[in-house]
Simulated scan of single mutants.
Amino acid sequence: MSADPQTPPPATATATATSTATATASPAKLQTAIDSLSSIVPALSTLTPSNLLTNPDLYSNISALLRQPNSGAGDNNLCRWLYDTFQSGVADLQLLVLRFLPVIAGVYLSRVADRKPQAGFEAVLLALYAHETTSRAGQPVSITIPDLTQPSVYHEATGKSPSKSTGAAESDLAVVSHALEPHGTVRSTRRARIVGVALELYYTKIAHMPISSKIDFCEFCKVWAGQEGEMYEKFEEDEEENEEGGVGSAMEVKVRKKVEGRVPLCWELLQPVMRILAHCLLGPNNNKEVVLFEKANEACRSLFARSMHDVNPKAILPMRSLMRLSKTLMPNSKHLDPTELPYSDVISL
């Protein structure tokens, strides 16, 4: 006897019941989170579930509290609220917590040298790291690099590689982020990896992040770099003049002032940082956000100066590329984009 087609299988029924229960519990969790936050920040007592992600005062008030000297401690109520809110599993609440990651990571890393306990910040960062560890299920994040020796719809192969078969196009697999191991504490050897994974999660949701959060990220990038980048503000123009005139470098050498808050920039941390900066510079309509565009440019120059100071070729090339690409988007730029379609008010039939 065949089963009733209207009756879902047990697994589907369980999943449906779980999603229904989650959807039913979400409004209650939202209201609980708002009530808890209002008790910590009385100025946000007017928050409602409908304006939780759009309230203009929410980000500024919480960011100011996260920057206070006593923030980040294990008994800090705001850090506890951020941790519990992210662990609620509600998508809107998780996006809300991610908005403050630049400030959390920025203040946390800048204070590491002070050797003060920051258990509150570390708990939030570990929650984000654990979320990514579970989401990836032990698998690395990888991308497929096509083999240009094989023809595609975009190009014809110029030559055949003797070591590869002439069958289907073969591709190389590049690992962007290695598989994650679960961690319950933050140690000095794991710190960059944990913060980097949290920034990778931030990058995956960056389209939902407000401009103020991205600007704070760019500001902290300058602090982490610990190098002044003004000397590279006209780096490309000076280089072009040198190439045309055949004269030595005309770039004025300035004293590189080290900024308080400088942190070690290993590749695990620098890679997601560059991805976020690339979005701030080259993302959709970002060149219309003048403040964000300028802050991202300043951050790139500072990180480029740091890369030059550390003689880090792995970081110099991408930072240099970001600086070059950003110049094509600057107002009154002489660098034209050949892929840009011409604009005209005349309709041709």
Rank of each mutant, 00 (worst) to 15 (best):
S213Q: 05
A225W: 04
K234W: 05
P210Q: 10
M251L: 09
Q227V: 02
V255R: 11
K214Y: 13
K205Q: 14
K234P: 01
G246T: 07
G229S: 07
M209Y: 04
E233D: 13
K254D: 08
D216L: 04
D216K: 00
L199S: 03
L199K: 00
E252N: 04
K234Y: 08
E230R: 09
V247K: 15
Y232N: 06
D216C: 02
M209P: 04
E228R: 03
E228G: 11
M209C: 08
Q227E: 10
E233M: 07
E237W: 05
K254V: 14
K205W: 06
I211C: 03
Y202A: 09
S213W: 08
N242L: 13
A225K: 01
K214Q: 15
G245C: 04
G226A: 06
E233W: 08
M231K: 07
E233F: 10
A207R: 05
V253F: 15
C218E: 05
S213C: 11
V223I: 10
S212M: 01
T204G: 08
I215K: 07
M231L: 10
V223L: 11
M231W: 06
M209H: 09
I215N: 04
E219P: 03
T204S: 12
F235R: 02
E244N: 06
V247C: 03
N242G: 12
F220D: 03
K234N: 09
E240I: 14
E243M: 12
E237C: 00
A250G: 06
E239V: 11
E230K: 15
Q227K: 01
P210S: 13
Y232T: 04
L201V: 02
E236I: 07
Q227R: 07
L199M: 07
E219R: 12
E252S: 09
F235V: 00
M209G: 00
K214T: 10
V255S: 13
E237Y: 06
V255H: 15
A207V: 15
L199Q: 01
G246R: 13
G229Q: 07
V255Q: 14
A225M: 04
E233H: 11
M251C: 05
I215A: 04
I215H: 01
E244L: 12
E228A: 06
E237L: 08
M231I: 12
K205F: 06
A207M: 12
E228H: 09
A225G: 14
C221G: 13
E244Y: 10
